[in-house]
């Protein structure tokens, strides 16, 4: 970010530059507003009184703040089955992802590994060409993973792009001399990977972990294609039923006291549900955010 400081005009800025600064601020503010306002509206609505929400009174902040929508979410059993499943898929899936990604990235970062070029090319090719939906479906079915939790864990065990990010980081950040001296000290590859390479790559590994976790948390298509059983469905499938298909029978029964506002409750529940379903990944995003530029930048170096 040093360049920004340098770019600031120390010589008295000319007229065009002043125009630029004003325009730049306006454009940035518009972008900020357009992206942020929908998020704000959803959050504010989720805390508002259903009647005020339905009357279109929520413009900026919650009107007659209430937690009714969140109570409705808490009492909705199907949502929590989805949350439980998604936590499982996210945690187990991400662990599998990280293990396999590191196992691929480390050898491919080592320049003295003879089949390195061949294997790198072979992996990279799969980013640009793939067999398609049906052959993959048939494979998953023939392997007996259809309608089992494995279907959401194994077919996506590694993402080549994420592997390249980690590999590039290993390659660029770990000096050759460090490796040579470790080797002379009798350090083998497993020890080197665990004791040196992984600890100094933590920022990039954190970013890649986030990428994988988000992918698992947000998975919809694979679940829709491979899972039939209600008890295995991840959160996104449940969200689709409630938010997009408006299947809401359950909520009117067990979350509301009076029948008159059942309709209103199911409306406000949607807003609260959007917030609840997004929170885990948003928290993870804030925790790992500071490493972004580094993690992505390294990945952008072609290799």
């Amino acid at each position: 970010m040093k360049s920004i400081v340098n770019k600031k005009n120390k010589i008295k800025g000319c007229f065009a530059d002043k125009v630029f600064d004003v325009l730049n601020f306006i454009v940035l503010f518009i972008i900020f507003f357009l992206v942020g306002y929908p998020l704000l509206i959803v959050i504010s609505s989720s805390f508002s009184e259903p009647t005020a929400l339905l009357a279109g009174k929520v413009w900026l902040y919650p009107i007659q703040p209430t937690l009714a929508g969140y109570q409705a979410v808490i009492h909705h059993k199907q949502i929590w089955v989805g949350v439980g499943n998604s936590v499982f898929y996210t945690v187990v899936g991400t662990v599998i992802n990280m293990v396999i990604t590191v196992l691929a990235a480390y050898p491919l970062s080592r320049t003295d590994f003879a089949p390195r070029k061949f294997i790198s090319l072979m992996f990279a090719f799969t980013m640009w060409f793939h067999g398609g939906l049906m052959p993959t479906y048939l494979l998953v079915r023939d392997l007996g993973m259809y309608n089992t939790r494995w279907a959401l864990l194994i077919p996506t065990a590694m993402n080549v792009w994420n592997m390249i990010i980690v590999r590039t980081y290993f390659q660029n950040s770990i000096s050759e001399s460090l490796f040579e001296s470790a080797r002379l000290d009798g350090c083998d590859d497993f020890t080197y990977l665990l004791k040196i390479a992984l600890p100094i790559s933590m920022p990039t590994l954190a970013v890649v972990t986030l990428y994988y976790a988000v992918a698992h948390w947000n998975v919809f298509t694979a679940a829709y294609i491979y899972l039939q059983k209600q008890s295995l469905q991840p959160l996104q499938t449940v969200l689709r039923e409630i938010l997009l298909l408006s299947k809401m029978q359950e909520v009117s029964v067990d979350a509301t006291a009076g029948e008159t506002n059942a309709q209103q409750m199911s409306e406000i529940l949607k807003y609260s549900l959007v917030v609840v379903a997004s929170i885990p990944m948003v928290i993870l995003y804030f925790l790992i955010q500071k490493h972004f530029t580094k993690g992505v930048m390294v990945g952008s170096v072609k290799g």
Partner: peptide
């Protein structure tokens, strides 16, 4: 970081 379902809704 939001899912497709969330963005659409």
């Amino acid at each position: 970081f939001l899912s497709t379902v969330i963005v659409i809704s």
